[in-house]
Design a protein around this nucleic acid. Structure first.
Lengths: 182, 182
DNA sequence: CAAGATATGGAGACGGTCTCCACTTGTCAA
DNA sequence: TTGACAAGTGGAGACCGTCTCCATATCTTG
């Protein structure tokens, strides 16, 4: 996804408007068809398609922005890696609790294979914390990042269970307990 | 979904043929459109729609059958509840490893809210084992079933991560370790 | 301020989903 | 067995969301 060329000014504005509109729509959990979607962002369908050829591409763009904010909160140098990891995972749940629709859409639409492929900020942040905490001896050292990501994915995609919020919190605590166990 | 009326013999045959065909298609991970789908089962589209108004209804029917088999394996009276629970969770992963397409389809299509609503054999089996194992004192007693289900859901829906099989196994071990921890 | 490059929008082709009903098949009472 | 009614069927075609295509509009650069 490297920028091959600089976007023309108006194109960039449109692109941003689309992402913003998408964020909004996903968050409200509105089920909009692609055409209306374009209208909502104030552009034509053609423009929407040029910038984001698939629904997934659009979701990925939103995803990227959301995740970046989350990761920043987990880089407090005053805390140990294990503490930062716990903070990140808990923040993740609270974020998802606050933005259920967004989380569900992203979990449903963003392809795990793509995410796992490297470009994923959340995964590499978790991987980093995991490695460093394991180095400290504060958590087990035999846990692949993927195992943690799988749990997070489950949390993001099960948002319409009746008591989901408390279950999600419990799942994270379970995960943290598992990480600490010998 | 109580049977309001007994199905006519031919109708029942058709219904079963459809479910069997669906199982097959999902398992192979073929992306079939509804019409061809009906043809595959040897019935008309109309028939398909009468029996299963939505893709989800169809997936749910397949799901039910698959899960019933799994749960039976976890009712060994010679083992403790905790052991049966561990066996069930591990069997779940191995099942999903062997039938990735099926698992992904079901995870993507079957609505968690419906599953959680009661009619779900897997969830009630897990709930039962969880309660009994907690009674024995072999695992923590503050874990809602939902937390475990969320992890299982994550496992089922992340099947296209590159090293997914080993990550899924690790996730289950992590979960089991978390359950054991004080 | 040209002239070329870049981006736009939305009409309409395309294709999957789902409905509807004339027809077939099963069931059951006589 | 058979007639008569209920139950079930199939697939043509209406419907509607997705996506392409290109004449037009807008930027940018020399």
């Amino acid at each position: 996804m490297a920028e091959g060329r600089a976007l023309r000014a108006d194109a960039r504005r449109n692109r941003e408007a689309i992402v913003a509109a998408a964020r909004d729509v996903f968050d409200r959990d509105e089920q909009l068809r692609f055409d209306d979607f374009a209208a909502r962002a104030g552009v034509g369908v053609g423009t929407l398609y040029r910038h984001f050829p698939t629904r997934e591409a659009l979701a990925a763009a939103v995803y990227e922005g959301e995740v970046a904010a989350l990761c920043d909160e987990a880089r407090d140098p005053a805390r140990s890696a294990a503490e930062n990891l716990a903070a990140l995972l808990r923040a993740f749940v609270e974020y998802v609790v606050a933005h259920g629709g967004l989380a569900r859409t992203l979990a449903a639409v963003v392809d795990p294979a793509v995410q796992a492929d490297g470009g994923n900020a959340l995964e590499s942040t978790v991987a980093d914390l995991l490695t460093r905490a394991a180095g400290d001896g504060t958590i087990r050292d035999d846990v692949p990042v993927g195992a943690v990501m799988i749990v997070l994915h489950g949390i993001g995609s099960a948002t319409d269970r009746p008591h989901w919020a408390s279950e999600a919190r419990a799942a994270v605590e379970l995960l943290l307990a598992g990480l600490r166990a010998a």
